[in-house]
Amino acid sequence: MVLILGGAGAGKKEYARSLGFTDADFSTDVSDGKPVLYDLETIVRDVDVPFDALLKKKLILCREVGSGVIPLDRSEREWREAVGRLCCALAKEATAVVRVVCGIPTVLKGKLPCISD
């Protein structure tokens, strides 16, 4: 599994497409067998995500939400905390972690992946 992080609109999906994945590969369902999971930060708002199922994905795209002013709303703070901790746990298991900034991928762990992986 490769974890792809970045801010909103940073180019995470575009980067996934550049690896050869098509829109038919994308999904927000953790257990539908599709290789690319996106909007992880939104999914965890509603569902208790089974960690093992996440590890079966090829790519996981998640927005970085931990920067900025600490939200006044408690549930928003807990959500930031949950997304951050989940990404720490996923990064540990990932073969590669890529952060997209202005559409440019930077490797935080492992090597830049290619489609044959």
Binding site: R80, V83, G84
Partner: peptide
């Protein structure tokens, strides 16, 4: 530095 819950 780093965002919340990133392991700082």
């Amino acid at each position: 530095t780093g965002g919340a819950a990133n392991g700082k």
